[in-house]
Simulated scan of single mutants.
Amino acid sequence: MPKSSKLEETLELLGTVRNDPTSEAAIATLRQVIKSRYSIAVAQAARIVGDAEIYSLVPDLIATFDQFMVKPVETDANCHAKFRIAETLYRLNYGEEHLFLRGIRHVQMEPVWGGRQDTAVNLRGICALGLVGMNYPDVMVELADLLADSEPPARVAAARAIAYSENTQGVPLLRLKVRIGDKEPQVLSECFAALLKLAPSQSVSLIAGFLASPEEQIQEIAALALGESRLREAFEILQRWWERTNQAELRRAGLLAIALLRYEDALEFLLALIAEGRSRDAKDAIAALSIYQQDEILWQKVCKSVEERGEAGLQQALKELRKEG
């Protein structure tokens, strides 16, 4: 039988177990698929095992993971199966480090048009979470290496895993990373968020310093991170920064960051801008507060301020936001 037909047959087998995956017959079928050589089918079976929380199939998943680590480009192109297996074991709170350590260190270079591409990035990320979830003693060593990974998504995953760990041992790693810098803005954003979660009082001033960066994108990332922190001390920092910047996009980002703080003083500041500020600032404040359109009381205050001001441009801006909402 041709390979494509055999794969289709295997995938059809999976279709027969989805309605009742924990039955004896379904578990036998899942075990059969997991032991097959078709990585796409194995990936789907692993997801079913995770969704149904079938712990009895964990040993089978581990054995297959190890098999796909042999000539991995040939046996599991694009890391589909290895990723899904690791993800399932993480969701099932698997408590042995062997598989997660292999996964977080695995690099799988595959040929693509014009060169080669690492397809194991997501695998490294989920294995980082797996090691954090099982409280692996040397997890920060592994996360330090991942934070220096050549692939930006892996560095992002490292920062998220450090935040998820709630372990302040990760703070020096994150501080060093942001001091050195990263060419990928999303990495800095995740590092800022992790620092503000793990060590808020120590990190506000550090991140506030990036509001003076010569790169506008970094200023915006720092402002939004401070806003999402919901720390009261961030309000005055963001307000002062907004007042001294002249760049229109940054001023809009600053008001959004203030809105994200979500506490009364910050929201009243934005409402005051709508009522009395310059037209451009008032429009930006309306846009910033539009994230609260589902908050009936607050949004009524916005609408009332616009109505009382009676400025056609602001009324039009509000009308357009209502359409988008």
Rank of each mutant, 00 (worst) to 15 (best):
N78L: 13
G170V: 03
E307L: 13
S279L: 13
T16R: 11
L92C: 01
Q239M: 06
S56E: 15
V70S: 05
G15V: 11
L13M: 13
L260H: 14
C79D: 11
D138P: 01
P153G: 04
E151R: 12
K3G: 01
A259Q: 06
F269H: 14
L289W: 02
S4L: 07
E96N: 08
A43V: 06
R47M: 07
S5T: 05
E87K: 13
Q315A: 11
L224N: 08
M109E: 14
E243Q: 14
L256A: 07
L289T: 01
G95L: 01
A312S: 13
Q67D: 12
W113E: 10
N135L: 10
V73L: 08
E87T: 03
K3F: 12
H80N: 10
A234E: 08
Q186I: 10
A158P: 01
D182A: 09
L57M: 12
L14V: 09
P172D: 05
R230V: 13
Y38F: 15
S23N: 09
E233S: 14
Q202M: 09
D138H: 07
A193V: 13
G133T: 00
C79I: 01
K301T: 08
Q108R: 11
L146F: 02
E296M: 09
L11E: 10
N78F: 15
N246D: 08
R102M: 13
A317H: 09
I291P: 03
F269N: 10
Q239C: 00
A41Q: 06
T64G: 04
S203P: 05
R47Q: 13
L255W: 00
L11R: 05
K319Q: 14
P72T: 08
